[in-house]
Simulated assay, not measured.
Amino acid sequence: MRRIGFIGTENSHTDHFLRFLNTEQRHPGFRVVALAGGRTERNEALRAQGGVEHVVDDPAGLVPLVDAAIVSTRDGARHRDQAEPLLAAGLPVLVDKPFATTVDDAVAMLDAAEKTSAVLVSCSALRFVPQIADLADDAGRGALRQLSIVGPGDPDSEYSGLFFYGIHHVEAALEILGNPVVEPGSVTASVTRDGDTTVALLRIAGVAVVLTFVVPDAGHRVPFHATATGVDGVVARELTLGRDYNAPALTRFVTAVETGRAPAGREQLLSPVVVLSAVADALADQRERP
C-alpha cells in the first residue's frame, strides 16, 4: 500500500482526490492516510469522510507517515515551503496548480527534487480536456498564427493574484502550442486592465498569444474558451471541465509514483511560471506608473 499525505486541505481539490483514492478506490494500492494543517474543523471532517488515520501540524510531520504527498494549498506562494521538506526526504510530490508564483520558487523546488531524485509533478486540469486536441491539430486551420485563451482571473485575488486561475490560461496555451520551452527572461508581456478585464499580449514560439482574464463573482464566471487562428482557418472551443476534472492529474501522479519517472521535465514545469510571471510583472509595472 502506498500511503498518501495531503497539504492544503482548504482547497476543494482535496475533496476530489480523497474521493478518487479512498471512497471510490480508483487507484488500488494507493490510499490517503494523513492530513497536514492540524486538527481544524475542516481536517476533522475530511478525516471522518475518508477514514484518514493521521492529522499532523505541518508538512514535515508527514515524512515518516507517507510514501508520497499532494500539495493543494490555494496560494501558490506557499507551495515551495510546503513541498521542500517532502522533496528533501525523497518523496514524490504532486504540486497542484499553480506550481509556483515566482521563477525562483519554481527553480528551488526543481533543484530540491533533483537533489534527491524525487518525482515532482504539477499540471493544470485544462491540459487534459478533449477540446485541447482539437485546437492543437493543424489539419483544418493550417499553421498557427494567433492563440487566444479566455477565462476567469482576478489580479487582486488573495491567492497571489492572477496565479490562482490564470495558470490555467497559460498551461492550456502551452499545451496547444506543443509545450515549447520558455526560458526565464525570454518573454515579455504587454498588459492592459479595464475594470474587471485584464488582457495580456505575448509572443511564444513565434505565435501571438492573447490571454484574457475576467474577474469572477457570485453572479457570473466566464467559461474557459480558446480560439486558434491559422493561415487556413479558425478553430474555437469552450474548454469544459467535468465533475472529475482533477482525475487525469491524479492518474498522472499515480503513474509517476509507480514508475519513478516524472511525466514532464524541468523545462515544462518551469515554462508556465515564466510566462505568467511576465504577465504579473507587466501588470505590477503598470500599477506603479503615475
Rank of each mutant, 00 (worst) to 15 (best):
R47Q: 13
V275S: 01
E158R: 04
G142M: 09
A34W: 08
R74I: 03
A69G: 10
T14M: 09
D57P: 03
T23S: 11
A113F: 02
A136V: 06
F253H: 14
R31D: 02
E267V: 04
R80W: 01
V52M: 08
Y159G: 00
A106R: 01
G61Y: 07
R80V: 00
P85D: 08
S190M: 14
R42C: 02
A77F: 00
A112G: 05
A247D: 12
V52E: 04
L144I: 06
L250N: 10
V66C: 14
R141K: 13
G206Q: 03
F253S: 13
F30P: 08
R145L: 12
Q25K: 15
L202C: 06
A282L: 09
V257Q: 12
G161R: 08
D67T: 13
A83F: 00
P223T: 13
R252Q: 15
D232I: 00
T9S: 09
G51P: 08
D58Q: 10
F30W: 07
G233P: 09
F20C: 07
N11P: 11
M1A: 15
A112D: 02
A77S: 13
V274Y: 08
V191I: 05
T240M: 12
T255L: 11
R74A: 06
P130Y: 10
R19W: 09
F17G: 09
D134E: 14
A172I: 01
H54W: 15
G219R: 10
D105L: 02
G153T: 12
L250W: 09
G219Y: 04
G242F: 05
K97H: 01
T9I: 02
R78F: 02
S72F: 03
S148M: 13
E183W: 08
A136E: 05
L18R: 05
P216R: 10
T9D: 02
G185V: 06
A108T: 10
G142W: 07
D156G: 11
G38H: 09
A83H: 02
T227M: 09
P98C: 00
A34K: 12
L144H: 05
V191Q: 05
S117R: 15
A284T: 14
F164P: 00
A112R: 04
T197S: 14
V257C: 15
Q25L: 07
V191H: 04
P28W: 05
E53K: 14
G37Y: 03
R78V: 02
V274F: 08
A88L: 07
G206C: 07
V257Y: 15
D57W: 02
H225D: 06
G140N: 13
L35S: 04
G50A: 09
L110S: 11
L87E: 00
S271Y: 02
T101C: 11
P152S: 11
A228L: 02
F213E: 10
V56P: 13
V33K: 10
H79K: 06
G260C: 15
P223I: 14
A100K: 11
V107G: 02
E171R: 05
P28F: 03
T212K: 14
R127E: 05
L283Y: 10
S148I: 12
G61K: 05
G37M: 06
R287I: 13
